[in-house]
């Protein structure tokens, strides 16, 4: 069975590190790579009337922006190294959605970069990498 590495990316330096870490290993293992970008979203948030009317248009813009500024550049980095990568943009609770994507694409491993927050913020709100490590359905690598 081919290995499938799912990289959770958000355009930060941390996800660049996760990308180069995974690229090396994917080449060595002959694995497929899937890039996943999740935009934080709750269907239970409150929107104003105008936000409702513009929502669909905004969503299209946001997805296009994610593809052109985050996923596109990463895909070209991977293709330079001879790796083909699929990409997924999704809305939802970040950790839960990443787990859902992992199951959908049959990922054998999830890789995520660590933002390295410390102190109060991290204690209060936790971090995506931290909570992903807790609930991921497959082995999860956190790249510092």
């Amino acid at each position: 069975m081919t290995e499938i590495y799912l990289i959770a990316v958000d355009g930060s330096d941390a996800s660049q590190r996760a990308l180069s870490y995974t690229a090396e290993r994917a080449k060595a293992a002959g694995a497929k790579v899937v890039l996943a970008h999740v935009l934080e979203w709750s269907p239970y948030s409150f929107l104003t009337q105008e936000e409702l009317a513009e929502r669909h248009a905004r969503r299209k813009q946001e997805v296009a922006r994610a593809e052109s500024t985050v996923l596109g550049p990463m895909q070209s980095i991977l293709s330079e190294q001879g790796l083909a990568a699929e990409s997924v943009v999704r809305y939802g609770h970040v950790t839960e959605t990443l787990c859902d994507i992992a199951k959908e694409v049959d990922a054998t491993q999830i890789v995520i970069g660590r933002m390295g927050q410390s102190g109060l913020t991290a204690r209060l709100f936790g971090s995506v990498a931290g909570s992903l490590a807790q609930v991921a359905p497959v082995p999860c690598t956190i790249v510092p």
Binding site: P43, Y44, L47, R59, E62
Partner: peptide, 25 residues
Amino acid sequence: RGKYTDPKDAGEVSHFQALATALSG
């Protein structure tokens, strides 16, 4: 409660949001 909403459609206006906004009016 979103039981019939496709998770892939997240990011669009949900039933809850439309109801909540209409209610605030």
